[in-house]
Structures are given as C-alpha cells and as structure tokens.
Design a protein around this nucleic acid. Structure first.
Length: 201
DNA sequence: ATCCAGGCAA
DNA sequence: TTGCCTGGAT
C-alpha cells in the first residue's frame, strides 16, 4: 500500500485534510458529509458557525426545527438534525471522550445513532488524532481495481498492516484516495487510472 | 429528466 | 435492500 500512497502523493501533492477549527467541528462535519458533497457540508458548517452553534453545549439545545433549516443543504436533513442533537448531547456530557484509546473510542462512537464504521473512524483519525484507517466508497472502488476485495474490516486491516502506524500518514493517504477518486474514478477518466498498471504489489 | 454524492439503520 | 433528501452536473 505504501506504493499506492507514493503514486497518489506524487500525482496530487499534499492535501492537508481535514479542514476544521476544532475537533467538534470535525465530528459534525463527519456526520454531515455522509452521502453528501463536501461543498454542501461547508455551507452548513458556515451556517452553524454564523449562529454560534458549532459547540456541543449550544448545539445540543437548539430547536430541532431550526437545526434542520441550517443543514438543509446537505440532504437527509431531518435524520441528520436529530442525530447531531443526540451526538451533541453525548459530547456535552462527555467532554473528554476524545482522550480515550482508539479502540475504545471507536466502539463508543459506533453505539451512537448515525455513526457507522466510516464516520467513527473519521472521528477517531481526524478529531482525536489516533491511528485508524478510514475506508470509504472510493477506497473500496480503488481496492477492487487493484485486486483487493472484502468487507470494511478486511480492507482496513490490509491498510493498517501494510503501513507504519502514523496518524499523519493515515490522514494524508485517505485524503489522497478521496481526491483521486473524485478526479479519476468517474466513468469519464477511469481509463486514465495510474493505479491499475503501476500500483500492483 | 435523471443521476448520484467520502453512509447509516432497519 | 430500501428509505432518507438536497443540489449540481449531465
């Protein structure tokens, strides 16, 4: 997998993902971006900031209806509003939750409504700065193209066992995969893929 | 007019 | 597998 990383890094340069002022902003963004373009998430985050709601204490107490309006542009806004409120209540009641060890934190996050594998790992990696490799739709596609298939846990172990345990590397690699996926994994440029030929282990 | 985004839960 | 939902691209 290091070879894939090097190829992507050379092709795309550093990504510096995830853009956020606070860990809580990463948490909220991770939920909002589910099945949603990042540009729409940015708008919703801005709305929340403008209303001083990007903090667990305030967000946990906002009227559901108002929250729905502010995040409408991300789609699934009713589900997401409800889930964000519950998650905010949890973070408000457990302010030092991100200090927990990666594995424990991951399980706690998974027990919350609206947080599945990918969202939990995004929070562990980008909000808590702990080494968990994030597997998303693009990662699955790319893996399939280079001959690696399996469920979430299987793919995650392939990455984690073939890379040094390095938070910065995990962050950068995932960000590169997403950017590469956006640019090349559509039908239009799939034929220009630099990974299928050069990326074989 | 149709498709589909860095998913999740039932 | 289906429902959840908006917004931009085709």
């Amino acid at each position: 997998m290091k070879k894939i990383y090097d190829l992507l890094r050379r092709e795309l340069g550093p990504r510096h993902w995830w853009p956020a002022d606070t860990a809580f902003e990463v948490v909220i963004g991770a939920v909002l971006t589910q099945q949603t373009r990042w540009e729409n998430v940015e708008q919703a985050i801005k709305n929340l900031k403008d209303h001083s709601l990007l903090e667990a204490d305030f967000l946990s107490k906002v009227k559901t209806e108002e929250l729905e309006g502010l995040i409408r542009c991300t789609g699934f806004y009713r589900q997401k509003a409800m889930r964000l409120k519950n998650i905010s209540i949890f973070f408000h009641e457990n302010p030092d939750i991100l200090e927990k060890p990666a594995g424990e934190l991951r399980n706690i996050l998974l027990s919350l409504d609206g947080i599945g594998n990918e969202t939990a790992d995004s929070i562990v990696l980008y909000a808590a700065d702990k080494p968990k490799f994030v597997i998303d739709a693009y990662t699955k596609r790319i893996c399939k193209c280079i001959g690696i298939e399996g469920d979430y846990g299987k793919l995650q172990s392939v990455f984690e066992s073939s890379l040094p345990v390095d938070v910065s590397l995990y962050k950068e690699f995932h960000a590169l995969i997403v950017e590469y996926g956006k640019q090349f994994c559509g039908k239009k440029r799939c034929c220009d893929c630099i990974l299928v030929e050069n990326g074989k282990t």
